[in-house]
């Protein structure tokens, strides 16, 4: 559809001015072919990417009997929302989604609050060892999490936090913070010093400078990191299964794995569960696509 639209104007013009002749028509044709080729290539590529998603969406609305007798790869012979019901109610996805939000929202807020404070101090003041502190914090985020799994689960036990959601919030904040500090530091450093000096001369303390000047100016970076960290924390599996035990406390990703273990051959339920688990991050992505892409690029050290 887009192809014809894009192609139409040059073709019209070529006809309207027959004397401009060959070269214009040829160029127009080349453009048409270019457009066709582009949309064919990009369209096929996108299709390839979207097929697995379509398969899951379709599977989630089929009935178990349909899948069992016709196979997973066949066209649907049924339509039912029973899979969603099973996943949402019996499979506990509803509680899991609530748990995920209970963990994700405070963890995102807390990490960004702490990270912005640290980034503010490190970027706007001549602290001793500030570069070292920055790198140590970033380095912690780059550690392979495997090395932390065993000690972290023992640590939460000793604190009596094992199998509680605050433990998961704590470890998410602790592990993610280094990266956010690093990104925000880069951003805050670029804010002109004059702005801060003016405030200092006006008698503002660090808290005022932080909360009323720097933080508002950092809003684009904060928005990008919010979108990004939301998906990271929401999608995490490893930490959740390390510090939690009760199914009633598991966030959605871990619960999805449990759902798969519970409804092994019932692909409609598993597919419905995957749709439920992916929906929130897809919504965040579609709504904040710009911030999202910006966030990924912020992380890239250029």
């Amino acid at each position: 559809m887009t192809t014809t639209h894009a192609a139409a104007p040059p073709a019209d013009r070529a006809e309207a001015q027959p004397k401009r002749l060959r070269s214009a028509t040829a160029a127009g044709r080349r453009r048409i072919w270019g457009t066709v080729a582009f949309h064919t290539g990009a369209g096929l590529l996108s299709l390839l990417w979207l097929v697995p998603i379509a398969v899951v969406l379709i599977t989630s609305t089929r009935s178990f009997d349909d899948i069992a007798s016709h196979g997973l790869g066949s066209l649907p012979h049924s339509f039912t929302l029973g899979g969603f019901r099973a996943a949402w109610v019996d499979g506990g996805q509803k509680q899991a989604l609530i748990n995920s939000l209970i963990v994700t929202v405070p963890a995102v807020l807390l990490s960004l609050l702490l990270a912005s404070m640290a980034a503010f101090a490190l970027s706007r003041y001549d602290l001793p060892l500030r570069r070292a502190a920055l790198l140590v914090m970033l380095g912690g985020n780059l550690l392979p999490p495997q090395i932390l799994l065993i000690p972290v689960s023992k640590l939460t036990e000793q604190l009596g936090l094992y199998d509680t959601l605050p433990a998961l919030i704590g470890v998410q904040v602790g592990f993610g913070i280094g990266f956010y500090v690093f990104v925000l530091h880069g951003f805050m450093r670029a804010i002109p010093a004059e702005i801060q000096q003016a405030a200092v001369i006006d008698g503002a303390g660090p808290w005022q400078i932080y909360s009323r000047i720097i933080l508002p100016l950092t809003r684009p970076a904060l928005a990008a990191l919010t979108a990004l960290s939301f998906t990271w924390i929401f999608n995490d599996l490893l930490w959740a299964i390390t510090v939690l035990r009760s199914d009633s406390k598991m966030p959605i990703t871990a619960s999805l794995l449990g759902l798969q273990g519970q409804y092994v051959s019932q692909w409609n339920v598993v597919a419905a569960g995957s749709v439920i688990a992916a929906a929130p991050t897809v919504l965040v992505f579609l709504r904040f696509q710009r911030h999202f892409v910006a966030g990924l690029n912020l992380g890239a050290v250029k």
Binding site: A121, L148, G174, F175
Partner: peptide, 21 residues
């Protein structure tokens, strides 16, 4: 206050990441 701004997050990370590491 600025020192605290750095130390609190650093402690949080130290507690959850460096000490377990």
């Amino acid at each position: 206050l600025v020192l605290a701004f750095v130390l609190i997050p650093l402690l949080a990370e130290g507690f959850w990441v460096f000490w377990p590491a």
